[in-house]
């Protein structure tokens, strides 16, 4: 089941704009290797879940997965063939707001080649261009 917040202050939020680049959450912090996004936008909870399932099926309990983003934002939509007006639509799905440079997934406890293969499969499921990154030396 896709992730969503347990408690929110408001059911619906304004759309907003994805401006600028990631100034935090843009380095590998927990695992050894990560998947860095090169474009900004919304990442639906379903897409995030698809990535998680892909990793789970690839790793089969070998390594560790870290998901660095969470779908905090509710996205509303108006049903088809509905006249305009009558207020804002109902929440359709939940999404994470993604800025270029953010790390979406991190893996640890895997050899580099396995991590590359694993995250390449995840990248295929993502709606953004992504790249494989390693932990930076201090």
């Amino acid at each position: 089941m896709p992730q969503m917040p347990k408690r929110v202050k408001f059911r619906k939020v304004q759309r907003g704009r994805v401006r600028g680049v990631a100034s935090r959450g843009n380095t590998v912090a927990f695992g050894e290797y990560g998947l860095q996004v090169l474009e900004g936008g919304w990442l639906s909870a379903e897409a995030l879940e698809a990535g998680r399932v892909t990793v789970a099926q690839f790793m089969r309990g070998e390594g560790r997965l870290y998901i660095r983003v969470f779908p905090h934002k509710s996205i509303t939509s108006i049903p088809a063939e509905t006249r305009m007006g009558k207020g804002k639509g109902e929440p359709e799905y939940w999404a994470a707001v993604i800025k270029p440079g953010m790390i979406l997934f991190e893996v640890g406890g895997l050899p580099e080649q396995s991590a590359r293969d694993c995250l390449a499969r995840v990248a295929y499921k993502m709606p953004f261009r992504c790249r494989f990154v390693k932990r930076q030396a201090s």
Binding site: M1, M4, P5, K9, V53, V55, G61, P91
Partner: peptide, 21 residues
Amino acid sequence: TAQALEVVAGAEGANEPEVIT
């Protein structure tokens, strides 16, 4: 100890989050 990641999460649970306001 290796613990397989849950592939299919349970379907139970609220469909909408609790609204605190």
